[in-house]
Design a protein around this nucleic acid. Structure first.
Length: 220
DNA sequence: CGTTCGATGCACT
DNA sequence: GTGCATCGAACGT
């Protein structure tokens, strides 16, 4: 039996991940979220994708973690119960979505960096094209709709309103998916887009997958 | 191929 | 005032 199964991760596709899934070492959660499905329901419809890339941010000793400088009003969700969403605005432009992990009081989370689009592709395309900096430009290919943490929140319609919301229930949740839907290979690399903590191999992705972010041709 | 850089909001010092 | 867990256009090689 795998650690994920012991933690209550049901094998049946469509089953929502419980708080117990997130109440584990963050690197295990980052690994086990690969292949699961992130779903968002809004008035416009349902959009979802299979998680193909994540990053772990672990504790006040991790210089890249928002909790590195201690607890503040902004990063308070990191200290909260596992299985909640930590959503924040980055570079004034992009909402980034994390799943809070480990026991309450231990600040840690997994950043969702890329999805393989699954349901609601037309709505994703519509949302991506409505972003100001893409207006009037060409449509992204399907594999790029949710490639990158800022892109996937646009495609799924995830905003700061999701901050602190539980990921175990609608309208925003993560569920099991068919394990055969993605290829087997996984790669661990340094995290992307950070200045500090580059010595840690805390990014995990489906190897050589077109929906994974990062430079084309680089080790993915 | 590669690197640089502007847009843009807000938490934090 | 500074610095981002980004994106994608523009430019250099």
């Amino acid at each position: 039996m795998t650690a994920a199964r012991r933690a209550g991760r049901a094998a049946r596709p469509g089953t929502r991940l419980t708080a117990a899934f997130y109440d584990r070492p963050t690197l295990d959660v980052a690994r086990d979220l690969i292949g699961c499905r992130l779903v968002h329901e809004t008035a416009d419809g349902r959009t979802s994708g299979l998680i193909v890339e994540t990053e772990a941010y672990i504790g006040e000793d991790d210089p890249a973690c928002h909790a590195a400088a201690g607890r503040t009003a902004r990063n308070a969700p990191l200290y909260g119960p596992p299985g909640t969403a930590y959503v924040y605005l980055n570079y004034g432009l992009h909402c980034l979505v994390n799943a809070v992990t480990e026991a309450e009081g231990r600040p840690a989370a997994v950043l969702i960096r890329a999805l393989l689009p699954d349901n609601g592709l037309p709505l994703m395309r519509q949302r991506r094209m409505a972003v100001p900096w893409r207006r009037g430009r060409s449509e992204p290919p399907d594999a790029a709709l949710c490639r990158g943490p800022g892109n996937l929140t646009v495609a799924l319609g995830i905003t700061l309103a999701a901050n602190r919301q539980r990921l175990t229930h609608a309208p925003l949740w993560i569920e099991m998916a068919d394990a055969a839907a993605l290829p087997d290979g996984r790669v661990w690399t340094p995290r992307i887009g950070i200045r500090h903590g580059l010595d840690r191999l805390w990014r995990v992705a489906v190897a050589d997958h077109p929906a994974v972010s990062g430079r084309r041709g680089a080790v993915r």
